[in-house]
Simulated scan of single mutants.
Amino acid sequence: MSNSSNQTTATIPQIRRNRSALIRIQSVMMRHLYLMRASWPRIFELMYWPSIQIVLWGFITQFLLTNSSYIAQAAGVLVSAVLLWDILFRAQLGFSLSFLEELWSRNIGNLAVSPLRPYEFLFALMVMSMIRTLIGILPATFLAILFYEVSLYDLGLPLILFFSNLMMMGWTIGLLVCALILRVGLGAESMAWLTIFLIAPISAVYYPVDILPEWLQALAWGLPTAPVFEGMRAILFDQGFQLDLFIHSLLLNILYFSIAIGVFLWAYHVARKRGLLLQMGE
C-alpha cells in the first residue's frame, strides 16, 4: 500500500511539470497565432506559393502538351523568358528593398524631416532599382550564352524597349508595395517578394496569352507584361518586332505608373502627418 502511495506521490510533480510545459508551448503557439490573425499578409503568404505554382505550371504543361512544335525551340524561348522575367522581378524587388532598408535602419524618419523632397526620394529609389537589376541580370545573360548558347542580345534594339517597359512595371509594383507597407506597417513586408508572382500566371511569360481561359485573357491584356512577352516570342519565332504590342504595353505602363506614384505619395503624406514613419523599423 505504501509503495502504491509513494508512486502516486512521485507522479504528481511530473504531471505538474508536463502540464507547465504544455502551457508554455501553448503560450508560444498562441503568440504566433495572434500575430497571424492580426496580419492578413502572413496568412495570405501561407496559401500563396502552392496556389501560384499549381496555376503557373498547369498552364505551362497544358501549352506544351498541345503544341509539340514549340518544343524544338523551347530552350531559347524559355531561357529568354526567364531572363526578361528576372528584369521585372529585380526591378520591383530592388525598389522595394531599397525602401525597406530605410525602414529597417529607422532612417525613414530622418529622411522625412530632411530637405529631401518625396519625388527626389522616389527618383533615387528608381535609380537604385536599375543598378540592382543590372548587377543581377548581366552575369545571368552571359551564363545563358555560355551554357545554353542563348543570347538575349539577339533581340536587338527591341531589347531596350522591353527592358524599359519591364523596369517601369517593376517600379509600379514596388510603389504600390511600399505604399501598402506605409499604411499597415512592416507586417506587410513579405508582399515585396509575393506580389510580383501574383501576376506571373497571366503575364504570358512562358506561354502565349491564348492558352489562358478567355476570362483570364482579358486580364492578361490589361497588364503591360503580356505584350512584352508576346513581343519577345514574335521576334524569336521570326515574326519581327510588333510595334502595336510595344505601344499597348507602354500606354498601360504610363497609366499604372502614374496611379502608383499618386498612391505612394498619398500614403507617404498620411504616414508623415500621423508620425507613423518614426514608429517603423526593426
Rank of each mutant, 00 (worst) to 15 (best):
Y268C: 00
F257E: 00
L182I: 05
G170K: 03
C178T: 15
C178P: 06
I43R: 10
L100Y: 11
Y70W: 12
E45M: 11
Q242A: 07
Y34Q: 13
I108V: 15
L88W: 01
P208R: 09
L22M: 14
I135A: 14
I173D: 03
A188G: 07
K273Q: 14
G281K: 07
G136S: 14
D154H: 13
N107A: 10
A267Q: 09
A10F: 13
P224Q: 08
F44Y: 13
M169V: 05
I202H: 04
V177M: 08
V79I: 15
L33K: 07
E149Y: 11
P158L: 09
E120K: 04
Q26Y: 14
L159Y: 05
N6A: 14
L143I: 15
S249G: 13
I131P: 02
L116W: 02
A260P: 03
I196E: 03
D86I: 00
D210A: 10
I60N: 03
L157K: 09
L278V: 04
V55D: 01
I54S: 12
T8K: 13
I173R: 01
S151F: 09
R183F: 05
S80T: 12
G156T: 08
Y34L: 14
W40N: 02
L84A: 02
W49G: 04
L146W: 15
S190Y: 00
M126F: 03
L159W: 05
Y34E: 11
I87F: 02
W171S: 03
V205W: 00
I247N: 05
P158C: 09
G109I: 02
I23G: 06
V77T: 10
L212W: 06
D238L: 06
R24M: 15
E214C: 02
L152A: 02
L251W: 08
Q62T: 10
A72I: 06
R183G: 03
I261R: 00
S258K: 01
W49E: 07
S151A: 11
R19H: 08
R106N: 12
M191S: 06
A91F: 05
A38N: 15
L111G: 00
L243K: 02
R24T: 14
L251P: 02
L134H: 03
F246V: 07
W193G: 03
M36P: 00
W85I: 01
R37V: 10
P115D: 09
L122N: 00
S4Y: 10
E45S: 13
F237L: 13
G185A: 11
M168W: 05
L186R: 05
Q242N: 09
L88M: 10
R17Y: 08
G170L: 01
L100V: 10
L216I: 12
S5R: 12
L212F: 09
I199T: 10
T66W: 04
Q26P: 00
N6D: 11
L265P: 01
L161T: 02
L46E: 11
L56C: 07
L46R: 10
Q26F: 15
A218N: 04
I25E: 12
A192V: 01
F99M: 10
I131V: 15
S69G: 09
R90V: 01
I52N: 03
L88G: 08
